[in-house]
Design a protein around this nucleic acid. Structure first.
Lengths: 239, 239
DNA sequence: ATTATCTATAGATCTATAGATAATGC
DNA sequence: ATTATCTATAGATCTATAGATAATGC
């Protein structure tokens, strides 16, 4: 248990009075996190050696253990941070909107769009969603939003469990699809285009699909899914 | 390239004339496959050492290389075999039913139910669905069934891509959920029950959900999803 | 003096192969 | 004689730690 955890792990700007050594340590930690994020997004936790992380971070090998106890530990930290950053955005969205359908729609559009813009982030978000128990990751936010919609009567569900499963699966499927299609030269994109599939506006179409699963009519869902997106403030140092 | 591939990898009964040595070899291979299947279902390909596979199969370590070139090779073989066995069942279902909705419903009910009965099989099916490109796994069968339904007019889709994504995500989500809930003492099960969630008949409810995504009304979907299941013949040596 | 980093390395783990042993089939 | 298995091991890879070096802060 030799490592020190900085109070608020994600903040970039230090409290001004932060001594130089502490800043240096924080920066090293940050470099390790960033390097691990990219490597593990691409190849998964098991596919990456600590050696590779320190190399990519341009940090001495032994320094890794000044910051993390193990590979599992840094991976867990990364998941925690991706989720926290996502959660904060979600809270921000929730606090500025009334309609539960619009809240969920905004969250979905945000997640899908951001995964296309930043596949490293997206791949990691998917890892958190699939890892261990569902409700420790993405699922908890979805569940909260869905319950809110049920309570308010906006969502009318005959089968809450299946609705939850289906919404979750749809979102993860869309994140995956979006990242397959995002690169301009991807084979997935070519195949899809040959099949005549529409690859525009996937965030909005995902949101609409999700809302229909939750009981809105086609028209209602499309309307909500195309409302103007409120600006979302991002403050992640990692991405 | 020292290994020999038996013609039809999955068959149990040999052509009677098979010499003793060949049978012995086939049985060793089979034991390796079975052991790897269980270990890799639980811990993933990377989490298992070849050593552990031969130990579990009660086979000398070096013998592994009489049958497979690498860990990747045996994993690929396992995916291929799980998928083939699934595909044959799907073909059997397709050939004996007319209604595209019923064909897809039967396939979904079969996959979900069998995952509950045999979590090792289920976990592997999920691995095939998530691995590499979507359409090499489960997806190809779904895509075929959905296209058939569109062609016949049974499914009316405004957005084929999202329908496909959503159906795929829903099925994988249901497979996962079903396996979480299947063990009598699982925590997931307790949590779900405390939330008042209905855990009965998940195969049928998944099928119904999928059909609704594909444009059937609630009532139509429920009716199809509860038709009597035609008997399905299984002939997998591995499970 | 303290703290964070670095280099170097011991030990564990794992893969792939070589060569010996045992069983089969002619 | 051939074939499949086995045991034993060399070599590669990776983790975790020890001890040296450099920078900071008093």
């Amino acid at each position: 248990m030799s490592q020190t955890k900085t109070g608020s792990a994600a903040t970039t700007e230090a409290p001004a009075k932060e001594p130089r050594g502490a800043r240096r340590k924080r920066e090293t930690r940050q470099r390790l996190m960033k390097a691990a994020l990219e490597l593990m997004a691409a190849r998964g936790m098991d596919g990456v050696a600590i050696n590779e992380i320190t190399e990519a971070a341009d940090v001495g090998f032994g320094s890794f253990y000044n910051h993390f106890d193990s590979k599992e530990a840094i991976h867990a930290e990364l998941m925690r941070e991706v989720l926290n950053s996502f959660g904060e955005t979600m809270d921000h969205i929730s606090n500025n909107l009334e309609d539960p359908a619009e809240i969920l729609s905004t969250a979905v559009r945000y997640a899908v769009q951001r995964s296309a813009d930043n596949p490293v982030w997206g791949r990691f978000l998917i890892q958190t969603a699939l890892s261990a128990d569902i409700l420790s990751g993405l699922g908890q936010y979805m569940l909260r939003d869905i319950q809110r919609g049920i309570a308010s009567g906006r969502f009318k569900l005959k089968d809450p469990l299946m609705a939850f499963t289906s919404v979750g699966g749809t979102v993860i499927g869309a994140l995956t699809a979006q990242m397959e299609f995002a690169p301009a030269d991807s084979t997935a994109k070519k195949v899809a285009q040959q099949l005549g599939l529409n690859l525009e506006n996937i965030p909005e179409r995902t949101a609409s699909t999700v809302l229909q699963i939750l009981g809105l009519t086609n028209e209602q869902a499309d309307e909500v899914a195309h409302r103007p997106l409120p600006p979302v403030e991002l403050r992640d140092s990692l991405f």
